[in-house]
């Protein structure tokens, strides 16, 4: 079974040379730490920066240079700043190659829910609805089940949706799944996790074809 870092490491392998990537808050943010260093990738943050670098050194933080999580950041050579409309032009116009974000639920039809739990304080969707409605390539980073052990990989989402039919791939603590017309196709198992365990933790239709390899990190 993977921890959050493990999920980030596995997703990092999906990032290819020349990609512009938008990372959501939480596990997706960790992905930046594990991208191969022999490829060129630029990270976009929807508040208006392309070419994000690491956190600043203590004393060098600048209130005018933050990421979408409102954290102080730095920029790398070649970086650019822009306004919010242009930022979402990059996203909506499909100039960003890969979007990695978290989810509360995903469904076998590609629906995703990650912004609202009825009855609880709603903080808002931020840029998530724009990202999922537009991106060609969306990978979801999430835990396979909730704290009560109930599946979050479903036939249909029960929570209010963020986007419909948009998720392409899901990386959880247990498995890598591809969203297909017929359901979730099991691509890889997490280290030490059996197909049986994945079946038990998945409420949505699970397609298992042949031997399922264990993922390498």
């Amino acid at each position: 079974m993977l921890d959050k870092t493990g999920i980030a490491k596995r997703i990092a392998k999906e990032v290819q040379d020349g990609y512009y990537v938008n990372l959501g808050i939480g596990i997706p943010t960790l992905v930046a730490n594990y991208v191969r260093d022999d490829i060129e990738v630029e990270f976009q943050s929807e508040n208006g920066v392309l070419g994000m670098g690491p956190f600043p050194f203590d004393g060098e933080e600048d209130a005018d240079i933050i990421n979408a999580g409102k954290q102080t950041i730095t920029t790398l050579p070649g970086a650019s700043f822009f306004d919010s409309a242009m930022s979402f032009a990059m996203i909506r116009g499909q100039h960003v190659d890969l979007t990695i974000l978290g989810a509360m639920e995903v469904a076998e039809n590609g629906d995703i829910a990650n912004w609202k739990i009825p009855g609880k304080m709603v903080k808002g969707m931020g840029g998530a609805m724009d990202l999922v409605a537009s991106a060609e390539n969306i990978i979801v980073a999430m835990m396979h089940t909730n704290k009560r052990g109930e599946s979050k990989i479903l036939k249909r989402c029960s929570l209010p949706l963020t986007g419909v039919g948009c998720v392409k791939k899901v990386v959880t603590n247990l498995a890598v799944l591809e969203v297909t017309d017929k359901g979730f196709k099991l691509l890889e198992r997490a280290p030490g996790v059996s197909v049986e365990e994945i079946k038990k933790a998945t409420e949505g239709t699970l397609i298992i074809e042949g031997d399922i390899p264990e993922m390498s990190l």
Partner: peptide, 28 residues
């Protein structure tokens, strides 16, 4: 949605009465 917020401002600035966006389709 954040991109819709930005674009509804920009539409007002640029003289567009409205815009079509994919964000939020199929949601509340």
């Amino acid at each position: 949605p954040q991109g819709t917020l930005a674009e509804r401002c920009r539409a007002a600035q640029a003289g567009f009465p409205a815009i079509f966006t994919p964000a939020g389709y199929g949601t509340e």
